[in-house]
Design a protein around this nucleic acid. Structure first.
Lengths: 173, 173
DNA sequence: CAGACTGATTGCATTTTGAAATCAGTTGCA
DNA sequence: TGCAACTGATTTCAAAATGCAATCAGTCTG
């Protein structure tokens, strides 16, 4: 995980930032999972990231300007990681990645419902989501948005699918 | 470069397909550079890919269903690689990646002009480009598009910038 | 037939990854 | 006070991936 600068091509440079198997997973968990602490990212990671890899990637993402770190007042050793604007503007890319993966790869139903809603919502929904992230992570004022947060909506949909599948597997319930 | 299947999340699965430093570079060169042969990809690669890595990734991309390989009638040992629909639908993702990189990373002017035009053209231009790629790689009929191909347009813009920079550096020319 | 060209493969040193154990400081609770 | 649980990491070490250079066998050209 070095910073090569192999060429000045935008696609190449983007790949050098998150062209590995973990950086985008961490950002995904922060963006969609709302995780802000090392332990949350470590234990909550569906893919089972190792602690040394997580520490390395957090450090690297900070050096790249995608994350910042602040002390958590509640615990002297606790750190809160925040997304920068640079990371928040990845939302459309993540939405497209999810949409593409949903079409072409063997995704599971409950894990792809979020991608489906994000795709259906399109740029207006992505903008609303990015605005909420700016509020959470950068302290920006929230402009008059209505209803539940995008993350809560996506999470609720996920839980509905999970509940529905449990019901389907056990109709007597 | 194994096929982990760490989770059924669409973003994770997408990363397992091209979450490395070379796969998307190869696809970029095929899509935007029109390269179809091993040697073209090897020698034309701006980032200097090694031949063993290229062979490995071509094989992997075929296994994943992103590429197909056919004999070139002009030379019994020559192979022509073609994009599948799965790979062609990456165009919007590449466009977004390029747009993001252009904003946040130290791209060079001549290498980012393509990304800029692709961003400005938006989904209609991406659709036209994908249609052209389907024609080239899948033999699909080209619906009545007008004017020069998207790739030629992007290439011309690139060359204009290069020429302009040379002029700027040497006004007497 | 000589030499260039085709898509690779091989060997080997270096780098990256990943899993488990461990670390030192902090906190909550008995 | 004492002690277990928790904090963000770091250490260790084997395995895997990478990158470079040399090489390969078959094919075409002059």
């Amino acid at each position: 995980m070095t910073l090569d600068r192999r060429s000045g091509c935008p696609i190449n440079l983007s790949l050098e930032v998150f062209g590995d198997r973990w950086s985008l997973i961490i950002l995904r968990d922060m963006i969609f999972g709302g995780r802000r602490h090392f332990r949350e990212l470590l234990n909550g990671s569906m893919e089972g990231i190792a602690s040394n890899i997580l520490a390395d990637r957090l450090k690297r993402l900070m050096e790249l300007g995608m994350l910042t770190k602040a002390d958590d007042p509640s615990h002297k050793q606790k750190a809160i990681y925040s997304l920068t604007e640079m990371a928040i503007t990845l939302v459309p890319i993540l939405a497209h990645l999810g949409a593409w993966g949903r079409v072409w790869l063997p995704t599971t139903e409950e894990l792809s419902i979020r991608a489906e809603l994000l795709e259906k919502g399109g740029p207006p929904l992505w903008d609303k989501f990015m605005d909420e992230l700016r509020h959470e992570h950068l302290g920006a004022p929230l402009d008059a948005t209505t209803g539940p947060s995008v993350r809560a909506t996506l999470q609720a949909a996920y839980e509905t699918v999970v509940a529905g599948k449990a019901l389907g597997a056990n109709p007597a319930a």
